[in-house]
């Protein structure tokens, strides 16, 4: 029979089907490959250029003093300590409140809820929609109902964290649902067949298998809260504070907004501090995301 690879042998048939010659197809194939690589290159180059630019700008102020000093209008003394703590408070509280509620919601929707009930469908529809709502809308909601209005918590770190919680909750729910849905239904069926209750099946079979996905998705959505500035702008975070939060009712600022403040200051030297603070924020974000990836790898390795 004929020699050579399969693709060569099929060439005449393919050519007759698509009406193109072999050379032309190879050329298109190469062109497509080049286009995809170029796309990746453009994205990476832009990111790289931004990072290099920010790093060069911020390097003079990238020292321990930056982390330990409080914000100041005097460039030589200006630091970001209260903003780091403010950010950690907000993100920490957001994680502590949103993860249990989000995961519990996902478990209910995936394992207990009956799809044919109108209220279940309503909840699902709302969660999907809420995930797409611009974050500033949550800020307005928080301003009207949490900072003022019925709850009246004021412009405090508690308010900020609560609004961020509402903001990330839909994404946490969706990520957790995906993770739970990925667990084969045979796990539950098997457990139920052996006499386990629904709760036992979920708690001992589904959750352990779903944890890598839940952890990754949740950490990624919580790390979104860390870079969030629009809703907090409305909730009193654009503030000059020279102390760390001491409780939920404390005044606060967060890194993205302190960066905004430094960058819009009249003093050029403070723009350098802003650049240095951007690097710190990036490092914090990368740390969170790396944790997410490591957690996933850790659990996946164990499973196989």
């Amino acid at each position: 029979m004929t020699e050579g690879p399969l693709s060569d042998r099929l060439e005449p048939q393919v050519a007759s089907l698509t009406g193109t010659t072999s050379r032309r197809r190879r050329f298109l194939d190469g062109l497509f490959r080049f286009a995809t690589i170029a796309s990746v290159g453009v994205a990476l180059l832009t990111l790289g250029a931004l990072l290099v630019d920010i790093f060069l700008q911020g390097r003079p102020r990238l020292n321990p003093d930056l982390l330990s000093n409080m914000p100041s209008s005097r460039p030589e003394r200006a630091g970001i300590q209260s903003a780091i703590f403010g950010t950690l408070w907000c993100v920490g509280l957001t994680a502590v409140v949103s993860l249990p509620i989000g995961v519990a919601t996902a478990i209910y929707l995936e394992q207990f809820a009956r799809r044919d009930r109108w209220y279940v469908r309503l909840v699902e529809l709302n969660i999907q929609n809420l995930a797409g709502v611009p974050s500033v809308v949550f800020g307005i909601l928080g301003l009207a109902f949490i900072a003022r209005g019925p709850l009246s918590w004021g412009f405090t770190v508690g308010t900020g964290a609560m609004v961020l919680t509402i903001l990330v909750l839909p994404t946490v729910v969706i990520a957790s649902r995906e993770a739970i849905r990925a667990v084969p239904s045979s796990f539950v069926d098997g457990a139920l067949a052996l006499g386990a209750t629904r709760w036992q099946a979920v708690w001992r079979q589904v959750l352990p298998a779903a944890i890598p996905g839940i952890a990754t998705g949740s950490i990624l959505s919580v790390s979104r809260a860390m870079g969030e500035s629009a809703p907090l702008l409305l909730l009193g975070a654009l503030t000059f504070v020279t102390f760390n939060p001491t409780g939920l009712d404390s005044g606060y600022t967060v890194l993205p907004l302190l960066i905004f403040k430094y960058a819009s200051d009249a003093k050029q030297e403070l723009h350098v501090v802003a650049a240095a603070a951007i690097i710190v924020l990036l490092v914090l974000l990368l740390t969170l995301n790396t944790t997410a990836i490591m957690l996933r790898n850790h659990f996946e390795k164990r499973r196989h």
Binding site: P100, A104, M162, L207, P208, G247, L248, D249
Partner: peptide, 27 residues
């Protein structure tokens, strides 16, 4: 351990919500 951690988180968040409203009154 992770399951205990999850359970603890649920507890902590409920406690946190209660504490939130309380500490605000105090403030």
């Amino acid at each position: 351990k992770i399951r205990y951690l999850l359970a603890a988180l649920v507890f902590a968040s409920t406690a946190g919500l209660v504490a939130c409203s309380k500490s605000d009154n105090n403030a």
